[in-house]
Design a protein around this nucleic acid. Structure first.
Lengths: 199, 199
DNA sequence: GATTTTTGCGAGCAATCGCTCGCGTTTGAA
DNA sequence: TTCAAACGCGAGCGATTGCTCGCAAAAATC
């Protein structure tokens, strides 16, 4: 059911996603109404539905855009580094710092990501993000703890992503002068767990 | 503005809290409407408002009841044990196992507790729970890592509670046969962090 | 220039939300 | 036995939700 888009329309879609990120960041997912998103984008509710069939589709498209942005940030941070041989502290820096920066630069991100108890609609919308994060973490885990059985590796990846999800609000909500300390704690938690896995 | 209650009324209030716990567990905090809570309690919406001025008050009362139940469970699990001298593994067992059991026995609990991004209304409602947990963890932390500055101790307590919040859904949602493995991971995370603190 | 498709609007729909209010019944103290 | 207070009901309030629909302007296609 693809539909022919004009350049103007593509621009509108990007504006809608920007507005949605704003609204999610400020109001949270549930309270960010489609009318509110449309108002922030400077368009009418009807126009929003020309581009997205509903709020969930907006969220999913926003999640896809976040994943794309994150993937390039991740690629830039790692380049061709050897994950297996890297010092644990350096590994954590390379993974955590860009992700924290990404969260600070995209306040709407955590509304789609940092929620242990997602409503089913939101869970489906944010699934691309979850899948992307889990994949990257599993790859790192496979390189650093080769002895780990696949089921255990999957479980440990879930744990690591969960920890990051949970602590992200703590980091982003902290005042600037305390943020480094919060980031240090996050790295302690992740590092402590990785160490106990043997990585 | 206290109001004289009959025994019948007190019973109703307990029934309403039971129904609210049910509704929170099944629908989540936001989608658990006062009408839905009243229906589950077998009463009319109007009757609910005879006992609670609103949804937030119901949540707060439920939180208070959870805190009371938890406190007695905690007391039973610790008795007069020496927290400072205890083996780390035993400490984790004594803290984690009863809390996990409590979460399994009270499915509504996590709706008021396991949410990193609480709406302000909910944050206020669940504040008693947060405060109680933080207090207990800070006490343990003070006994085991006496060298920790007060600000660092407070921060570490927040981190530990956060980790527990985040991983609780992973543990409770797991099928019975995988739950022990998830609990083990939770203990690894907490233990790894405590170790890196020097405790 | 004619036609089709895309873009745009905004009043307003049905459903749901938290909550109120009028009125009847039950209860317990006097 | 009396009577004020507590309990209970449920229709329905005003507001908000996600979303629709008829219709007009703009752009792409012919």
């Amino acid at each position: 059911m693809e539909r022919r888009r004009q350049a103007r329309g593509e621009r509108r879609m990007a504006e809608i996603l920007d507005a949605a990120a704003d609204a999610f960041a400020e109001l949270g997912y549930e309270k960010a109404s489609t009318n509110a998103i449309a108002a922030r984008a400077g368009i009418s509710p009807g126009s929003l539905y020309q581009f997205f069939p509903g709020k969930e589709a907006v969220a999913r498209a926003l999640a896809d855009r976040f994943v794309a942005d994150m993937a390039s940030a991740h690629a830039a941070a790692f380049g061709e580094a050897d994950v297996a041989a890297m010092d644990l502290g350096e590994l954590l820096d390379r993974v955590v710092d860009p992700l924290v920066a990404f969260n600070l630069a995209n306040p709407g991100f955590k509304a789609l990501f940092a929620r242990p108890d997602m409503p089913s609609a939101l869970a489906e919308s944010s699934q691309p993000i979850q899948a992307a994060m889990l994949g990257q973490v599993e790859a790192i885990l496979g390189a650093r703890v080769p002895g780990l059985a696949p089921a255990d590796r999957a479980r440990s990846a879930r744990v690591l992503v969960r920890i990051f999800q949970a602590m992200t609000p703590l980091v982003t909500a902290a005042p600037d002068e305390e943020r480094p300390a919060e980031i240090a704690e996050l790295k302690k938690v992740l590092g402590g767990y990785l160490t106990s896995l043997g990585g």
